[in-house]
Every structure is written in C-alpha cells, then in structure tokens.
Amino acid sequence: MKDMKIEIFDPAMCCSTGVCGPSVDPELTRVAAAVYSLEKKGFEIKRYNLANEPGIFAENETITQILNEKGPDALPVTIVDSQLKKSGKYPTNEELSEWFGVAKAELTEKPKKRVSIQLKQL
C-alpha cells in the first residue's frame, strides 16, 4: 500500500496547509495532522494550494475539468492513484484510514516544533 499516491488539491489558502492566521479551521488542522502522520509512515501524499501552485492544477486534466465545470467551489479535490475519489470536501480520517490501511487513531499526530528561548540578563 505504500506505493499508493494520494494528491489533495486545496483551494487558495494563505499557506500550504491553511493552518495559519488568527482563526484556524479545525478541518484544516485535522487534515494537516493526518497528512503529517501518513508522511511520517512513509506514504506518498501531496497537497497542492491553488494560490501557490496554479501550474500543477492546470497540468492535471481531472482538476482542469472539475474547475471548468464547477469552479473553485469544487475544491478540495482528492485523487488516489490518478482516480478522482472526493470533491468539495476533504477526505475523512475514516476514508484515509481505509485507503492507507492504517488505524484511524494513527492519523491524529500533530507536528511538534520545539522553540528555544534564550534570555539575556541585563
């Protein structure tokens, strides 16, 4: 199953995951955590942002057709091994679990960033 390729075509967002700014959509946080967890397990899963990577959208015939027919409201779109799997909503953790053959609980790990602060004494 690790040779499976999943691509998620996101609507235009401020950053690659959409989990930035003052008010973060919990759905985007869930998807970002699931993608992070799957990548750590060695699965190939890519996300493309319409605002930052329009060329990738234009190069994909399926995405071009969907955008021409339904417009950007059809995003996000999920393609699994070149086959359209979902349009208009992100895949659920249940769907990702089924597609990748992993437990749903394994899709909730969030990236951990360590911040070190060095204070100078005055």
Rank of each mutant, 00 (worst) to 15 (best):
A58P: 01
A34M: 13
D73T: 15
P72E: 06
E94Q: 15
P26L: 12
E69P: 03
R114H: 03
V102C: 11
G88W: 05
D10N: 14
C20N: 02
G55P: 09
Q83T: 15
E59V: 11
I117F: 02
I6V: 15
K5A: 03
L75S: 03
G21C: 04
V102W: 06
K113A: 08
D81H: 08
K70R: 12
E94I: 15
I8K: 00
N93H: 05
D25G: 07
L50F: 07
D81E: 09
R30N: 02
E95D: 11
K40T: 09
L50S: 02
L96A: 06
T62Y: 00
V35C: 08
G21A: 04
L96H: 02
R114Y: 03
Q65D: 02
E95R: 05
E59P: 09
D25E: 07
E106T: 12
I63E: 01
S37I: 14
Y36G: 03
L84Y: 01
E39T: 11
N60D: 08
R114C: 04
G101Y: 06
A33W: 00
E69D: 06
G71E: 01
I117M: 05
D81P: 09
E106C: 10
S16Q: 11
R47K: 09
P72V: 15
E106Y: 04
E61G: 10
W99M: 14
V35F: 00
Y48H: 05
I8E: 00
D25I: 00
E59C: 11
K41M: 12
T108H: 10
I66M: 12
G88S: 08
L119Y: 08
D25A: 09
W99R: 10
E27G: 08
G55R: 13
I8A: 00
P22Y: 02
E94P: 12
S16V: 14
V80I: 15
A12K: 13
A51K: 13
K110E: 06
K120G: 02
T64L: 13
G21S: 01
E7N: 12
Y90T: 11
A33M: 06
E95G: 12
A33R: 14
I8P: 00
L28S: 07
E39M: 06
V35R: 00
E94N: 14
C15E: 01
R47S: 01
C14K: 09
N52P: 04
L50P: 04
P22G: 05
K41D: 01
C20Q: 02
Q121W: 06
S116Y: 05
E44S: 14
L28R: 15
L28G: 10
A103N: 05
I66K: 13
K112A: 10
Y48L: 10
K110H: 04
K2F: 02
P54Q: 03
K85E: 01
K112I: 14
E27L: 12
Y48P: 03
A51D: 01
K120Q: 03
P26G: 07
W99C: 09
A12E: 04
L107H: 07
P76Y: 01
S16F: 10
Q118H: 03
A105P: 06
S37G: 10
T17H: 08
A32Y: 04
E39P: 00
I63G: 02
T92M: 04
V77Q: 06
T108R: 09
P111R: 00
D25W: 00
K113T: 13
L107G: 09
S16A: 14
L67C: 05
L122P: 07
F100C: 10
F100K: 10
D73R: 15
M4I: 14
T108G: 08
L119A: 11
E59W: 03
I63S: 03
E109P: 05
K5I: 13
E98C: 08
